[in-house]
């Protein structure tokens, strides 16, 4: 069980949670993720680690309330518990001295690009950071990213802050200006990572993207997270989550992400109806077998 130490609503539907998870906090590195299961009936959902603090034994998760599971997580308050968190998972981001590195975050991706910005900067790279969101209010982790960047750009869909347009437009403008870029890393919605990869492919700039497909165990067992990279199936949980953006089949990824859209709506509507979900996982969940067996015995007797 993992305790919520801090909670902050960053935007209408974006929540930041600091969660007590000592082992994960000790071993986490930039680019890794966790799998979270809220309670006994919860889904296992992957979330990228936005920050970790080994001294406070905590990790930071930033989530966008898009479905039932994230909605329920968003309802947690300080002092509540998450039943299961597994991590840190996946390969960490390759942090090297590349030269000029462009770090791009879109939507909640802005939160999870920030540890990479920091690590790349500490490695001695020149950092150009581009963050983008729908509007100014949805720009999260602005100062955290800015603090470690040599150059810092903002784009918004509605033009309420920075350039009106997408992060890929800003990137293209930089390339067109003749700025030499050695390495790009982009985290955000699939269409954004696809657009960024398309821009850099034409200029042959190495581009890393962090993929967030559906996952269950996230330890290399179930295969639901398979993505086509360079024409072959890769498993994001153990081979990724980061891949060469020029090789990723983004359209297939988008399609696989929407497999359960109808079911997600059913679950979401139900959780909306239920109002606040009591985040009270049963304490004896791993020791309640004897009780359940009792019931089976009863059923057999009747049957």
């Amino acid at each position: 069980m993992y305790k919520i130490l801090n909670k902050q609503r960053l935007y209408e539907n974006i929540v930041k949670l600091d969660v007590e998870a000592p082992l994960i906090a000790q071993n986490a590195k930039a680019g890794q993720f966790v799998v979270v299961r809220l309670d006994e009936k919860g889904e296992r959902i992957p979330l990228t680690i936005a920050d970790h603090d080994p001294n406070k034994n905590s990790i930071t998760l930033v989530l966008q309330e898009v479905g039932a599971s994230t909605k329920l997580l968003g309802k947690l308050e300080i002092g509540h518990w998450i039943l299961d968190i597994l991590g840190p998972l996946g390969h960490p981001t390759e942090i090297e001295k590349f030269g000029t590195v462009v770090c791009i975050g879109g939507g909640v991706g802005i939160a999870v690009i920030h540890p990479i910005v920091k690590a790349m900067s500490e490695k001695g790279n020149k950092i150009i950071t581009i963050i983008g969101s729908r509007c100014e209010d949805a720009l999260i982790f602005k100062e955290d990213n800015k603090a470690h960047s040599d150059e810092f750009y903002i784009t918004t869909d509605d033009g309420s802050c920075g350039r009106k347009g997408f992060v890929s437009d800003e990137l293209k403008a930089l390339i067109d200006k003749g700025i030499k870029i050695d390495h790009v890393i982009a985290i955000g919605p699939v269409p954004m990572m696809k657009a960024v990869s398309n821009v850099t492919k034409a200029h042959n700039i190495k581009t890393i993207v962090s993929l967030n497909p559906l996952m269950l165990d996230a330890t290399g067992m179930c295969g639901v997270c398979r993505v086509t990279v360079g024409g072959v199936s890769k498993f994001a949980c153990v081979d990724g989550p980061e891949f060469d953006g020029h090789q990723v089949d983004f359209d297939e990824l988008s399609n696989r992400l929407t497999q359960y859209k109808d079911k997600e709506k059913i679950a979401f509507d139900k959780c909306e109806r239920c109002g606040t979900h009591p985040p009270t996982p049963s304490l004896d969940k791993r020791g309640g077998a004897a009780h359940k067996l009792h019931q089976i015995g009863d059923r057999r007797k009747r049957g």
């Binding site: 919860g42 039932a68 497999q259 359960y260």
Partner: peptide, 10 residues
């Protein structure tokens, strides 16, 4: 047991 349990299968 979906949607009581949140993991779907189709």
């Amino acid at each position: 047991l979906f949607p009581e349990y949140l993991t779907p299968v189709k």
